[in-house]
Simulated scan of single mutants.
Amino acid sequence: MKITIKDIARKAQVSPITVSRALNDKQDINPNTKKAILKIANDLGYFPNMLAQSLKSKKSKTLGVILRDISDPFYAEILQGISLTAAREGYQIILSISSRSGVDLDLEYNTLKMMLQKQVDGVLIIPEHEDLRYFAYLQKIHTPFVLLNRVPKGVQCDYVATDQQEGSRLAVSHFIKNGKKNIAYLVRRPLSGVVLTRIAACEKTLLDHGLSKNSMRVVECEDALVAAYEQTKITLKQHPEVNGIYTWDDVMAMGAIKASIELGCRIPDGVGIIGYDDIELAKYYNPALTTIRQNIQLIGRTAAEILIEKIHNGVQATKKAVILKPELVIRGTA
């Protein structure tokens, strides 16, 4: 049987109004009475009716989070950052997975609509596409939202991202400094705006060092360890001159490392490998992975802070665009 305020009042021999004041931490109540009521509530196993509270305040104290796949360490760390901020600010999280592989625009669109139907106070989204219809719909809704690690062109919204151009510049410059001038870049499908931004930055860096853009070949690949492993074997067999492999993320880099070792390549002397993200496993891999560090948890924490601020101040608050600087972390693979 569900315990109510009346049950607590009967046990404490006070009025339901007094119990309500104690449970809501009001000041106009005797401290000893409040302490006794809270103990009785705890002993009886009382929990407040959050639905009733949300109806009264018109706030659900929940944040919606839409991302691709929490089995990927990048998304898991993003979620951890969001969770830390949400818990600190008294919010719960409702998580929806938009797509576990590839891009499904209809699924992402329906996932967003279902999330909004849950009456969340705000939404944090990592979209896997850049369809303008999706973003046009987002801008029509009255629910605050913040994008993570995506900067869609022509869309005015709040977002937190890493400087993708600087990340690729750091990676390619490090290769060139160490004599690696035949580079294969394993990138995820589809070639989204973020992917194209990184590719363009790689090509500009090559030109800035007096090299041809043809010094780098772009190799499309599913962003998964096995796919990267298989594609690296194909690439190195077809193009034995490749001496530097840059990958979309660290998981793909780990597949590239295994493939390179199996083909007899010496790392980093024969083939250098640089990942992207600096997930926790990167420093424990053997050999330890040289990578471009995004402060992944900080992206999540910052985006959640911006969203909660918008919830408090209204959707018309000034848009915030936060671009975080990446960092080259040199370890054993390049």
Rank of each mutant, 00 (worst) to 15 (best):
M1C: 06
I3E: 01
K6N: 15
K6F: 11
A9S: 11
R10D: 15
Q13G: 10
R21L: 13
R21G: 07
A22N: 05
L23R: 08
L23S: 08
D25E: 14
Q27Y: 11
D28T: 12
A36F: 07
I37L: 14
L38F: 06
A41E: 06
N42V: 05
Y46A: 09
Y46M: 10
M50A: 13
A52G: 13
L55G: 05
T62A: 14
I66N: 01
F74C: 07
Q80A: 12
L84P: 00
A87P: 02
R88V: 06
L95H: 03
S99F: 00
D106I: 12
E108Y: 05
Y109K: 14
M114P: 00
M115A: 05
L116H: 02
L116A: 04
K118C: 09
D121E: 07
V123F: 01
L124N: 03
I125N: 00
P127A: 14
E128T: 14
Y134K: 10
Y137L: 13
Q139T: 11
F145K: 01
V146C: 10
P152L: 07
V160S: 06
A161G: 09
G167W: 00
A171K: 03
V172F: 01
V172P: 01
F175T: 03
I176H: 04
I176E: 04
N178G: 07
G179I: 12
R189C: 06
P190V: 12
G193Q: 13
K204G: 11
G210E: 09
S212K: 13
V219Q: 02
E220Y: 01
L225S: 05
A227L: 09
K237G: 03
E241W: 03
V242S: 03
G244S: 09
I245K: 03
Y246W: 14
T247M: 09
D250T: 10
D250L: 11
M254S: 04
G255R: 06
I257T: 00
I261S: 04
E262C: 08
G264L: 11
G264I: 09
R266L: 13
R266V: 13
G272K: 01
G275W: 02
Y276G: 02
D277K: 04
A282Y: 00
Y285Q: 01
P287V: 09
P287W: 04
L289Q: 06
T290L: 11
T291H: 03
I292K: 06
Q294C: 10
N295H: 14
I296A: 05
I299L: 15
I299H: 03
R301I: 08
H312M: 08
N313Q: 13
N313D: 08
G314P: 03
G314Q: 04
G314R: 04
A321N: 15
I323G: 02
P326N: 06
